[in-house]
């Protein structure tokens, strides 16, 4: 087995050129999925394009209407950005449930997204937050909603020579907040059996004016359950609204039976977690 070629470009353009020129090339950010897959023999890329030397990709920028999180920002770093933590505590928590401390010191949200596991912890939180990504490619950049990147387990909508260079999370709405929870048999170092992310916005009267619910590990890709959000909008987030929301979540789930959980368990637990994350997000939103 020949070792793959290793490239560490300085610019996005160089990176996309290298990826376009090498069909079997893979972008490398934290490497916590890629290197493990290479070592286990599941993946043998012809070349590796390391993104970490590209200017700006290890930074978090606070723009007027969004946070821009570079593709090579490790999950641990997210916790050090006070503004991000204040506006999107659920996203930061989700990213910091991945693996162990050592893993999170390397792992990135962009990598978590592009690994395209339906159980990726940061993805439901990003989807609930309404985040998008910048996809860099040979013909320039395009901005795509997060939920459109994974297309199935291990598969993405990224074309030849493309990679995710940045994650954009809109600035939080007034009266809004978010949360993410997952169900695992242990307390950490595990993969979600089911995950749920929620963003809710409540007005001064306590009425929900907007809600986004995303579910992980319950379908081939992370699900944005629009009906679940609709079930909450206009309600005071009361029991009746929760019941409708949980029903919508269970209906949207299309899980499999596997070693980590059964279909029945995932469907039921997805609703429970959705209710819990909405409750947490509401409490957080109420604090504003």
């Amino acid at each position: 087995m020949p070792s793959p070629a290793y490239h560490a470009p300085d610019t996005v353009k160089e990176a996309t050129d290298l990826l376009a020129a090498n069909k079997g090339a893979k972008p490398l950010a934290g490497g916590t999925d890629l290197i493990v897959q290479m070592q286990s023999g599941r993946m043998a890329p012809a070349a590796i394009v390391d993104l970490k030397r590209i200017a700006g990709l290890k930074e978090i920028r606070e723009e007027a209407d969004h946070f821009a999180i570079g593709a090579a920002v490790p999950c641990t770093s997210l916790k050090n950005n006070a503004a991000l933590v204040a506006e999107w505590p659920g996203v930061v928590e989700a990213a910091n449930l991945i693996g162990s401390v050592q893993v999170r010191n390397r792992a990135t949200m962009a990598g978590n997204l592009c690994n395209a596991s339906p159980a990726a912890d940061s993805v439901p939180a990003l989807v609930a937050a309404g985040a998008s990504v910048v996809v860099a490619g040979p013909s320039g950049e395009r901005e795509v909603p997060v939920e459109q990147i994974p297309t199935g387990p291990g598969k993405t909508s990224l074309g030849d020579g493309e990679f995710v260079s940045e994650i954009r999370i809109p600035r939080k709405a007034k009266g809004g907040s978010d949360a993410y929870l997952r169900s695992i048999p242990r307390t950490e170092m595990d993969i979600a059996v089911v995950g749920a992310g929620a963003q809710v916005v409540v007005d001064d009267s306590g009425t929900c004016t907007a809600a986004r619910i995303a579910i992980g590990a319950a379908a081939p890709t992370v699900l944005l359950v629009e009906d679940a959000g609709k079930a909450l909008v206009g309600s005071k987030l009361d029991d009746a609204a929760f019941a409708k929301m949980m029903e919508a979540v269970s209906a949207a789930c299309n899980p499999i039976d596997d070693k980590r959980g059964t279909v029945a368990y995932r469907k039921a637990t997805a609703g429970v977690l959705a209710k819990r994350v909405v409750e947490i997000a509401r409490q957080r939103a109420g604090g504003n």
Binding site: S183, P185, V193, T262, A264, Y265, A268
Partner: peptide, 10 residues
């Protein structure tokens, strides 16, 4: 496991 407990409770 959690799914067995969940099934028993339901």
């Amino acid at each position: 496991s959690p799914d067995k407990v969940h099934a028993a409770l339901n």
